[in-house]
Amino acid sequence: MNKTILAAILVTVAMLGFTYASIEMAGGLDKFLSGGDWVNMLAILGAVVLVAATTFVVTKYIRQMQNDTVGGKLADENWDGIGEYKNEAPFGWALIYFGTIIWAIWYFLAGYPVNSYSQIGEYNEDTQVHDKKFEAEFAGILKDPEKLNEMGESIFIVQCAPCHGLTADGMGGKAADLHTRISEASVKHVINNGANYLKTSFPGGMPPMLLQDPAQIDAVAKYVANGFKADDVAGKEAFTAGTCNTCHGENGEGMPMVAPKLNAMDADMVAAVLKDGKKGAIGTMPAFTNLTEVQHKAVDAYVASLSKK
């Protein structure tokens, strides 16, 4: 075989091999194609055509440089010594050229209006297909805690980890550490400032200054943050003194529609935070409005499962 053609084949194979290997590294071609995303397939195909077509057309002309001879009639004019042949334009080129022009005119006058393409229409269709497919596949997921948790984790990594960190530790205080229910600082902050963020779930809110004695505040903060240890008598006393128990229950178990659970993270609390957002001692978490019902439940379950106390 001719060296040039061999080189062309080598270049093409190397380019495509390199691309394939790299995509494998990022998760594997199968993974990207298995979702039935034909956009991915088309892009890959386009890339293959691009490399192959250019390499082989250029090779064709390089072969002509190597083996052919020029000829033809020269035009009369010449500019600074440059002449022009009166050669015809290459036939294949001219044919495809006029073909594409006719195709463009046809497409614009007939093809496009008949198809009546609408990008928003296409979006609506795609979304419907997508939703139907997964709804059917996971119809029973709410009754399968393990799967639900798995789904929650997957969502968490994409939606929540940017603030809470992959391990949900809150990234050094930039967002809440989701493994523990609550920190001392947060309890103090709420006692001093009150809180009225989770309006949908706890419409009454919590008034500030229920306790004013710093010692009592300290005691409650420790008591709550440490998970309501029964032997912490001072804490328990202060908790009652502040009337905290009237809303949050004797051991911080919370009351629906009145006040959140304080002794452990539960799915209801997560749901409340996602619905209204939450402003606290360390910062503000925005509400998450673009999750579906099932996605909501899945994250709620996952986050609740993280909490150790």
């Binding site: 940017p162 990234m171 930039k174 910062g283 503000t284 978490m285 925005p286 998450f288 673009n290």
Partner: peptide
Amino acid sequence: GNYRTTDWHENHMMNPPEVV
């Protein structure tokens, strides 16, 4: 504006890799 807040931006603009 729907999913990031003032304090997050404050931390982030000061030092993005620390936040992300």
